[in-house]
Design a protein around this nucleic acid. Structure first.
Lengths: 183, 183
DNA sequence: ACCTGATATCTTGACGTCAAGATATCAGGG
DNA sequence: CCCTGATATCTTGACGTCAAGATATCAGGT
């Protein structure tokens, strides 16, 4: 009866259950969006596993990479960091405190705005984040091994189409409902 | 110089920054995986917005839909619920407590296993979850409006390819490191 | 009857996040 | 100069989650 067959995932089962219970509803959006949510959870676990080898937590990585990406002198304001990591100001203060205590960043007064602070990556922080990032990329490459080059580009393009409306409206967003940013 | 141009998202900018700072690394995995993570965050916000109209929290919805999907008599064990929602047992106990206090579920002894409990949706819980689910689907449909039928299926298929390895290995997973489940 | 290991749920304590508000500074107008 | 509203960061208290362990029950073997 059944040959190799295209493998099922949990979402196939979940959608089938809904079609049984609510045949009146069109649950097809779940085919895409439920998969995005679930895949994201799996990715978060992979991240944690990759970072534990470097004694690093996910939240530390998120902050340190934002600074690393900024380029020399690897310095950003707390406001820029919270916008880049999608957390609130209270959370970011707490994170900076702990990263500073660990010697991975320093907190310096902004010479041009006395309200402001600039958070700068230390040499130790730079080394840590570069090692972790390299490792993360290696693992992520394996997760994508099931797709060919062409498929990966198609997938990236389709996801971009869904993201553009969000990122466009965040373009002009204020400080407190944080706009966006991730790995 | 520039015509319509294919719109950029934040990930395009993020990847460009990495290529500037670390031209030695292949950061292309981020084109797919960073988009998955970011999109998932946006979806979580949409969920919250959809549910607030029904005085419901995301975590409540996750539990109630698992029961709803199970079909009559809308009854599952706490263990099944934690596997379906990807949280730990302590979290699930807490959630069931609050849902029971709100009158949306009842907790009954399992007649076939005295260690066990069965959580059952009340009539009020059923009505609430059906209303919220209908509303969520409507909103999710809008999020996918940018894609044609054919593109949506392609996207769903590509995501399934990435998910299958995870869901397959979770097939035989134990109880405490929770396996999987979402919306 | 009594072990033994597995299973099912609940309890506890610590932790990270958020929302709201407090404090200090800035820039521009009168 | 001193308002006023905006901006930047920090503080506080409440809340949800997790990890680890406690308790009770089950199924199989002896």
């Amino acid at each position: 009866m059944s040959f190799p067959r295209p493998a099922e995932d949990e979402v196939d089962r979940l959608v089938a259950a809904w079609r049984q219970e609510r045949p009146d509803l069109d649950v097809s959006p779940l085919e895409v969006l439920s998969r995005v949510s679930r895949l994201s959870r799996h990715l978060e676990r992979e991240r944690r596993a990759a970072f534990s080898a470097h004694d690093m937590e996910s939240w530390e990585f998120d902050v340190l990479t934002a600074l690393r990406r900024a380029g020399k002198p690897y310095e950003l304001s707390p406001g820029a960091l919270l916008r880049a990591t999608l957390v609130t100001s209270g959370t970011m203060t707490n994170r900076i405190d702990r990263l500073a205590a660990a010697g991975l960043v320093t907190r310096n007064p902004d010479p041009e705005d006395r309200r402001g602070v600039l958070v700068r990556l230390t040499a130790a922080g730079l080394a840590r984040v570069d090692a972790a990032f390299t490792d993360l990329l290696r693992r992520e490459r394996e997760l994508l091994a099931g797709l060919g080059q062409h498929e990966r580009q198609a997938l990236a393009g389709l996801l971009r189409t869904l993201l553009v409306p969000f990122d466009a409206s965040a373009e002009n967003a204020g400080a407190h409902h944080p706009p966006m940013g991730r790995a």
